[in-house]
């Protein structure tokens, strides 16, 4: 009974949370995802370089124009290549995105089989 009660609370809480708005600003998120090409391993949010400062201006302009995140990324990828975004696009890099989860699943299956097999041998 307690358990059911707990899960009720838990799920009502989850439901309530779905309406919470994402507070991280679009601008900061985009800045963090764009690589400063002339730096070593920095995003333009972290960098003070000339290139980063210019790029920040351009991104700000495009946000004002009402462009979506994806449109801005596409624009930059077309000009500078995939190297410029830290979050690889899913369509071209789905192997990268799926591999960890495939591995997680396989691991889970192995673990499950291992326990199941042992339990069987024990009951036999």
């Amino acid at each position: 009974m307690r358990l059911i009660y707990t899960f009720l609370i838990f799920f009502s809480f989850l439901f309530f949370n779905l309406f919470a708005k994402d507070i991280s600003t679009k601008e900061a998120e985009i800045f963090k995802n764009i690589r400063c090409l002339i730096c070593q391993g920095q995003s333009i949010a972290d960098s003070n370089s000339e290139f980063s400062q210019t790029l920040k201006l351009v991104v700000k302009d495009q946000i004002k124009e009402g462009k979506s995140k994806e449109e801005i990324y596409d624009f930059l990828i077309e000009k500078y290549g995939e190297w410029i975004v830290y979050k690889p696009t899913f369509s071209k890099n789905f192997i990268l995105w799926l591999l960890p989860y495939i591995f997680l699943l396989l691991g889970g299956i192995v673990l499950f089989l291992l326990i199941k097999k042992r339990e069987n041998t024990k009951t036999n």
Partner: peptide
């Protein structure tokens, strides 16, 4: 791997690790 096999340079950065 992408560079050797397909000649494209890709960055895998914080967003990837955070999301996965």
């Amino acid at each position: 791997f992408t560079e050797v096999l397909t000649q494209t340079k890709v960055s895998v950065g914080p967003p990837f690790y955070n999301i996965t």
